[in-house]
Design a protein around this nucleic acid. Structure first.
Lengths: 134, 134
DNA sequence: TTGTTTGTTATATATAATGTATAACAGATA
DNA sequence: TATCTGTTATACATTATATATAACAAACAA
């Protein structure tokens, strides 16, 4: 978990940074199904933040179905298949893409360049580390 | 300005909803360079919100270069060319696309589908109303 | 001139979000 | 019996968000 980094000066909340980085970790293969996560106390200590901030991130990811919690074994990356593209996620994705696309368009970015940057963002996740397959 | 809609129950702040919708209005051509915007007081009254909430949105868009402010003439859509793809915007875009792409990937969405949805979000803006050309 | 509308600024207040600090609990494990 | 786990509860501080009034100076119309 040495790859986690928190920016205390950022405008994005700490627990959101945690959520995003953990999802990116799963996407990139750094975190695989069944992998154990640090306890809320140890991760909080490592990052120099509070226990409850870590717990809030874990709770959100547990509710979304990305994590599982066993008593005492601690938190584990969902071993039984990740949740798919739900209606709720599709709606959230469309809404945020529309907002981003609008500003990009106003600034003169073409549709193809916007799509290219989207594909590039996706691809860079996979080729970062660990990778998509074994 | 009858097309503006505010969701008071949304988790996204009102002034952010205003900023997003105004940028989408410019992108879609509903708002053209030089077009006047409602005064902070009248728009606030129309939407049933406070003057300062509208002013905060206008200030942000003014600082970004999307709006101009003349004393008494009121607020106007930037007539002298929109700001381009700055480094700051490129960085923000990449960061947000990465976050979205990560969750999409974890949920099993392919790179091509993610890119397709991005292009579709861009295209739907343009074809909504008013359009890209005269 | 007077009056009105404009953006702007200043205070004040209320509520919610965020983050921290302690403490305690029950279940699981060594 | 200890220890570690997630979990819950309480309290507190800070910031973000939103509203409510009030006032100001500039621009314009009468």
């Amino acid at each position: 978990m040495m790859w986690m980094e928190i920016d205390l000066q950022s405008e994005v909340p700490i627990y959101t940074q945690l959520v995003d980085q953990l999802i990116e970790g799963i996407a990139s293969g750094q975190l695989k199904p069944g992998d154990p996560l640090p306890s809320v106390r140890s991760l909080a200590a490592d990052l120099g933040i509070n226990l409850h901030t870590v717990n809030k991130a874990y709770q959100l990811l547990k509710q979304e179905g990305f994590l599982q919690v066993h008593r005492k074994q601690g938190v584990v990356v969902q071993p039984g298949g990740m949740p798919g593209v739900t209606d709720a996620f599709a709606a959230k994705l469309q809404r945020q893409l529309r907002t981003l696309a609008a500003e990009a368009a106003v600034r003169g970015m073409s549709e193809s360049e916007f799509a290219d940057r989207s594909a590039q963002a996706y691809r860079q996740l996979m080729t970062n580390q660990g990778g998509e397959a074994r």
